[in-house]
């Protein structure tokens, strides 16, 4: 992924349709098309590429600014912990469904430390699949998640969920190597946001 120094250099005013054709997206959509046909032939690759271009033009997405530096060890740790959490949370919720009394829940606010949109997205996706939480509201401007937490009898249980989410964010940051974003926290991210405007 190319890196752009976002604080000093404003993005040039290009048309969004042009920016929508990103090589990584095209490659991924083509691979997907070939996989769905289940047959690696020239015709499939060419038609897949055409479909990929059409999809990117019809549904243009903004490029995600991210500075990825994959750390294999941390990524493995994140993945393993994630799968364990998925199993644990599934069993927990399944058992809750069998319990006679009704559940008490809470809605909590989690301020993420990282100001990377990519980290925000990954954390939001993962928190929805790990124990006890789904995302009910996301604020991109301040990188805040609002989580609905299942089965919290008191405030302490809600608080521990907040800590677990922040720990998850730490693991995501460690795995994708966006540690520089930890340095400038909320105030830094807001001023960078305003400068771009």
């Amino acid at each position: 992924m190319s890196t752009v120094d976002e604080t000093t250099q404003a993005p040039p005013p290009r048309r969004s349709r042009y920016r929508a054709l990103q090589p990584a997206n095209l490659a991924w959509l083509t691979v997907l098309w070939v996989a769905l046909w289940g047959d690696l032939s020239v015709g499939n690759v060419v038609s897949g590429l055409l479909v990929a271009v059409a999809v990117c033009l019809v549904f243009p997405l903004p490029a995600v600014r991210m500075q990825l530096r994959l750390r294999p060890l941390a990524l493995t740790r994140l993945t393993l912990k994630f799968f364990v959490d998925v199993v644990v949370s599934s069993v927990q919720v399944a058992l809750l469904a069998l319990r006679p009394r009704t559940v008490r829940n809470s809605v909590i606010e989690v301020n993420l430390r990282s100001d990377s949109d990519f980290v925000l997205t990954v954390v939001a996706e993962m928190t929805s699949l790990v124990p006890g939480s789904i995302v009910v509201e996301v604020r991109r401007s301040s990188h805040t998640l609002f989580l609905h937490v299942l089965d919290t009898d008191d405030l302490r249980a809600a608080e521990s969920m907040r800590e677990r989410t922040l720990e998850l964010e730490q693991r995501v940051v460690a795995a994708f190597g966006a540690e520089h974003t930890l340095a400038h926290r909320r105030t830094g991210s807001v001023s960078a946001e305003e400068e771009r405007r």
């Binding site: 009704t102 559940v103 008490r104 829940n105 809470s106 809605v107 909590i108 606010e109 939001a124 996706e125 928190t127 929805s128 699949l129 789904i134 995302v135 009910v136 509201e137 996301v138 609002f146 609905h148 919290t152 009898d153 008191d154 405030l155 249980a157 809600a158």
Partner: peptide, 30 residues
């Protein structure tokens, strides 16, 4: 990748439409 998004959209809409039982919530920071 899609199941969390689906539940997020439904949950978000529910919150805005007032379809939330506040008696069941211990705390509500939203």
């Amino acid at each position: 990748s899609t199941a969390p998004i689906a539940s997020h959209m439904a949950g978000r809409a529910a919150f805005r439409a007032g379809q939330v039982d506040h008696d069941l919530l211990v705390t509500d920071e939203l």
